[in-house]
Every structure is written in C-alpha cells, then in structure tokens.
Design a protein around this nucleic acid. Structure first.
Length: 691
DNA sequence: CATTTTCTAAACATAA
DNA sequence: CTTATGTTTAGAAAAT
C-alpha cells in the first residue's frame, strides 16, 4: 500500500497540474495565438489611460466577484454555531483572472463527503457527476470566452492607440459587461447547484466532519483526481497525511481541519495560489461550520456587515453579529418568507442551469461529434473465437493510448453521451466490489448504464471498485467460450480499464495470484497451452484455495504417505497418473490436503475415497468421450489425453472444512454418495452458506 | 475493535 | 539465461 499510495499521490500531483493547465491550454491556445498574432506582448505598449481603463474593468469584475462571494455566503446560512470571534477578514483581492480559473464546482472534498456518507444511490452519483462535468465544461468555456475578451480588449486598446475609433472598444466593453453578467450567473448557478444538493440531503454537513469548503479550488475533477477520490472516500480523514506534498485542495482540507492552526490557511495557501496560478484560494470565509472551534467566518457575515438578504446591518464584531442574527433574523414569519424567496431564487437558477446545460450539451455534440468514440462498437470478444481473440484483442487493445495520467479525456471530451460515470453497480454481474459498496442487493441497472461505465473506466484512470476476482470472472464470462488464457485476461483488463494500463507488474501478479487462489478459477489444459475457466457457483461462494496446503509441484511425500495408507487408491491413481500429469498433480494435492481426514476415516471404510477415485475415473472417461466425439477433427496427431478438454487441475474433491460434511454424513451413514466433482454444490454443509 | 477479505510483494517452481 | 505462467505465503489495507 505504501508503494501504491505513494505513486498515486505523486502522479496525482502532477496530473492535476498538468491536467488543468493542459485542459486550459487546449481550450485557450487557439484564441490566444490569434490574439497575439503580432507576437507582441499586448499589455506592454498600452498607454496609461488605457491601462487605467483595463484596470477599471478588472476592478469591476473584482467587485462582481466580491458580490458573488457575498451572495454565496448568504446562501450558506445553514446551521452555524457561534464561532469565537471575528478575525479580521482580509478582503482578499483575488485577481479576476485567477478567480476565473476557479470554477465553483464541487471540490474533491465535497465529493468525498458525498461519497462517504453513502447517501447517494449510484444513480444519484451518476447524475451528480454528470452535472459536475457539465459545470466544469461550462466553466472552461466561460474561461475561454473571458480570455478571448481580454485579448480582444487589449488588441482594441492597441488599435485605438494607433488612432482607431473607440466605437469597437465600446462594443467590447459591452460584451465584457455581458460576460461579467454571464459569469456571475454561472457561478451563482454552480453555487445553487451545490445548495440544491444540500437541500436534497445529498450533501449534508455532518457535525464532526470538516465543513465543506465551498470555495472553488481546482479545475473540476480529472480522472486521476477521481481515482484519488476513490481512495480518499474510504479512508476517512486519513488524507490529512498528504499535507504539503499534494495538491492544494488537500492542503486546504488539512489546514481547515486542523483547528489548531486556523490562520495557516491564508499564510500558506496564498503563496501557493500565487505561485501556482491555477489554484486560487480565497481565505476561509465561506464555510458553514457547525463546529464551534472554527474561529471565525459565517456565511452571513462579512466585512462587518450582516449579509442576510436585504439586511446589511453593520456589526462591529462577530459577537454582535451573532446577536444581531439571533434577534433580527430569528425564526419568524419574515425570516421564513425570506428564506422561501431565496429558495425560489435558487430554483430559478437551477432551472436556468438545466437549460444552460442542455445548450452546452448541444454545443458539445455539435463541436465534438467526431472525437467521440463510437461507443456502440462491438467488442471483438463477442465476435471471434477465443484463439483469435487474444490476437485481435491485444492488437486492438488501447495499450497504445497515451497513458499519461495527465491527459485526461474528461475535460475535453464531450459529455454528450452522458459522461462516464462511477456507478459502482455497473458491469452487470461483476459481483464483489470493494470500497464500501455492497451492491449485492442492488437494483438492476440498464444496459445503458453498463455501457456508460465501461466507457468511463476505459478512459478514466480510476481504479475500478471491483475485486480482481470479479473482474477476472467477468473477463472469462464475456468471452465467447467462457475461457481465456492468462494473456487474454491481461488484455481484457487493459482494454476495459485505463487503470490497468499502468503498473502492469503489479496487477498482472495480482491476477495470477487470484487465479491460483480462488477456487472458482479452473485451469484447463489443451494442446495449445492452458486457459482459465470460471466456476460461477464457486465464485458466488467466494472461497479460496486452502491456505497452507502443500505445493502442487512437491507434494510427493504426502502423496506417498497417502497411497501407503490407502492402497485402494493406487490403482485408480495409476491409471490417471499415466495419462494426465496435471490431474495427477491435482489429485496429489487434494489427497495431501485431505490426508488427515482420510487417515482417520480410511479404516472405517470411508466411502469418500472410493468416490474420489470414481470421480477421477469419471472425469477421465468423460474427457475421453468428449475428445472422441467433439475434438477429433481439430488436432490429428495428439494423444487423446493431452487433448482432453476440461481437465480440472484444481479440482479438489475434499477440503478439510468440507470434509466435515461428508465425514459427518458418513458417520451418520445416510449420505448417498452421488459423487461427481460437482457434488459440493449440493451437499453444502449448512454452516458454509452463511456469509 | 476484531475478524475476514482483498491486495500486494516476493519467493519459488516449471516449462518454453 | 530469460520469460511467461503458476503457486504459495506473509503482511498490509480495506471491508465487515
């Protein structure tokens, strides 16, 4: 884990930086280059008057921003206990350009909380993420637009300086004004979005948890971030360890959480923001912290003024503000009415948001139709046999994709088809799934969901929340013949999950281990090599191969002992031994494993021994028949038993634990031993089904 | 907080 | 000798 989290943290850090800047770059460079086609640095030559003008505009934006912040705080009324006192709140002057880069989207922390609380159904989550991505995109577009405006403005200023008429400039100014409005609206919408989430109970602020940092932090969420999120979601607050070496959103969390050093936030973070350029942090005045320990800041209080809608009462300090709040805005008809109004405002904005999202959607579809992958492309899996599959799969596998974690498709790829989503229930029957989502009782999900999720995991480097075992099973079951070679399993992983395009050694080893360890995976040999099948019943049981049993390749002593104690076995063993070494190995292993119960019961004439032997015979015979009837055409020269199709090498007639079942049955002498190798599906000892 | 399950790394074996 | 494939174990992390 150390190694993993370490690398992931690292990659995250870079990913975020690159991701955001990369995303911006992609969006901006066109307009930027156009704007600066003369190669001049625009601002340099501008006269002081023009500069003043620009500054004015920027100040206007700044004011707008400030207003927005205030309104945000107003909306963050939610139950806030009395903080200690009101530290002077530096009316932090966020440069507009920086503020622009900080969309009011859901921060990872918020996502984390949402996920942690598990109040979201996967569908809700899906919706949430879709909205999130849509917002992100919208924000980026706004940014782009803003940049263009800036460039244009500067150009105009230059031109005007060269003697042109100010008419165009006026136009630009108007445009800019309009843009400001749109920006305001946009950010309000985003804020409302969050609020609505809260209202719906999707995003609750729990006591004992750090408050939601409601200020914008990063450029939305990129896949790596999501991935990190998956980890963080389950790791409670242990993420605080990431202090200092991680991206600043986490830093902020840390500093916010640590009530002991509240002032650190601004001290530490602001330099960060300035050097970074990508992240802006407006000092902590936006939280609605139910905690008393939180030193200052109330969403309804700022700059010495009460921010209750339409109030603006001046309050000297925080204490007086609280008094004012409790006296003037207590729970009465007026306050509730105002609250209702605010809610309506919010709803209106949400409506607007929905419309804008729709528009964005349409725009994106229009602009990016080609870049979208044809999601309906059928998987080669379903069309070809498993043998050709390995080839076609490996060739068609997206291994050639850039797996730089820093080139997330998310920000750029259109969300049109519905963004890929973390619906942990997807991938139909995947089964066990880690990270807290026990989806065993989950509602069936539509095939659209499945496709979406597959797309998501194909493109986002998010660790799929499924166990290796379930994924391997999925891979095998998806194959036309329900069998895959190891390499084909590898390929399936890389094809289906972006996450598994890195650290190959690790996850490949994990796959091998899982194949070996799980009872449900059965290795089968044919003349071309070996492949793996899955025993679904056994999978549902989820049992592991007995740990601590002797290794398959050196159980000789055990085997000898066993034979020595069970001479009747020898005959059967010899027949199989001569033909099929894998089977023999398996038999040896299982024998060795069951040596103890066998020892104790052999003298009692335990029928399981005979059954075991007959099972082996049956298996061989069946295999022979199978070979003769079906496969005789495929390989002329091979020995029949090498070509035996399903040779269950791993088959274990008895487990120590399972031995209790037959054993007790034997002693009570009422078990009719209908003993083929499937027997343990039926006579399952009662105590084993409970899980 | 304890137990179980899952993941990861590593040692080792074996065949190609 | 190297590589791919398997097996097994130990211990950490995550889930229950």
């Amino acid at each position: 884990m150390m190694q993993e989290s370490g690398t992931e943290t690292k990659s995250n850090g870079s990913a975020i930086q690159n991701g955001s800047s990369g995303g911006n770059h992609l969006l901006e460079c066109g307009s930027l280059r156009e704007g600066r086609s003369n190669g001049e640095t625009p601002a340099v030559d501008v006269g002081t008057a023009d500069l003043a003008h620009v500054q004015q505009q920027q100040q206007a934006l700044q004011v707008a921003r400030q207003l927005l912040l205030q309104q945000q705080q107003q909306q963050q009324v939610s139950g806030l206990k009395s903080p200690k006192r009101n530290d002077k709140q530096p009316a932090l002057q966020v440069p507009v350009s920086v503020a622009m880069m900080t969309p009011q989207v859901i921060t990872p922390q918020q996502m984390q909380q949402i996920l942690q609380q598990q109040v979201l159904s996967p569908q809700q989550l899906q919706v949430l993420l879709q909205q999130q991505q849509a917002l992100m995109l919208q924000q980026q577009q706004l940014q782009e637009f803003y940049k263009k405006q800036q460039e244009q403005l500067q150009l105009q200023l230059l031109q005007q300086h060269a003697g042109k008429q100010p008419k165009e400039q006026q136009q630009v100014a108007t445009q800019q004004l309009a843009f400001q409005q749109q920006l305001l609206q946009m950010q309000q919408l985003q804020q409302q979005h969050l609020l609505s989430l809260q209202r719906q109970g999707l995003l609750t602020i729990q006591p004992g948890q750090p408050a939601l940092p409601l200020q914008p932090l990063t450029q939305g969420m990129i896949p790596t971030e999501l991935q990190q999120l998956w980890k963080e979601v389950t790791s409670a607050h242990t993420t605080e360890e990431t202090t200092g070496n991680n991206h600043s959103s986490l830093d902020l969390t840390t500093t916010c959480v640590s009530s002991s050093a509240p002032s650190k936030t601004s001290l530490i973070m602001n330099p960060h923001a300035s050097t970074n350029g990508q992240l802006s942090v407006h000092t902590p005045k936006r939280e609605s912290l139910p905690h008393e320990e939180h030193p200052h800041s109330h969403p309804l209080y700022g700059h010495g003024v009460c921010k209750w809608p339409g109030c603006e009462a001046v309050c000297e300090d925080f204490q007086s503000f609280l008094k004012h709040l409790n006296s003037e805005h207590a729970l009465d008809d007026r306050s509730t009415a105002q609250c209702r109004v605010q809610m309506q405002v919010v709803q209106q904005l949400e409506l607007q948001l929905a419309k804008d999202k729709e528009r964005l959607q349409a725009m994106m579809t229009h602009l990016h139709v080609k870049s979208t992958e044809p999601k309906t492309a059928p998987q080669p899996l379903n069309l070809v046999s498993s043998v050709t599959l390995s080839k076609s799969a490996s060739e068609a596998s997206p291994q050639s994709l850039p797996h730089t974690p820093t080139t997330p498709t998310a920000p750029i790829t259109p969300v049109t088809q519905g963004p890929s989503v973390i619906t942990t229930t997807s991938m139909h029957t995947v089964g066990p799934i880690r990270r807290r989502y026990s989806d065993k009782y989950n509602v069936p999900i539509s095939s659209a969901d499945i496709a979406q999720n597959q797309e998501f995991y194909k493109n986002a480097e998010v660790r799929p929340p499924f166990t290796y075992a379930s994924l391997i099973r999925q891979a095998i079951l998806e194959s036309p013949e329900k069998q895959l070679t190891l390499n084909e399993i590898y390929n399936w992983f890389t094809r289906m999950f972006a996450y598994f395009r890195r650290n190959a050694a690790t996850w490949k080893g994990a796959i091998r281990t899982n194949l070996s360890l799980h009872k449900c995976f059965i290795r089968v040999e044919d003349e071309f090599g070996s492949f793996w099948t899955v025993d679904d019943e056994e999978f549902k049981r989820g049992r592991h191969i007995q740990r601590g049993r002797p290794r398959k390749y050196c159980p000789d002593e055990n085997f000898d002992e066993l034979v020595a104690h069970n001479p009747s076995l020898i005959k059967n063993m010899q027949t199989s031994h001569a033909y099929c070494t894998p089977l023999n190995a398996a038999l040896q292993a299982s024998m060795a494993e069951n040596s103890i119960p066998l020892y104790t019961t052999a003298s009692m004439g335990n029928p399981t021994l005979g059954n075991l032997a007959s099972a082996i015979r049956e298996e061989l015979n069946g295999a022979m028949e199978h070979t003769n009837s079906n496969e005789s055409d495929s390989s002329p020269g091979r020995s029949p038993l090498q070509a035996v199709h399903p040779v269950h090498v791993k088959e274990e007639p008895l487990d120590p634990e399972e031995a209790e079942g037959p054993l007790s049955l034997v002693t009570t002498a009422n078990h009719s031993p209908d003993f083929d190798h499937d027997r343990d599906y039926e006579d399952e000892p009662v105590n084993e089904d409970m899980e």
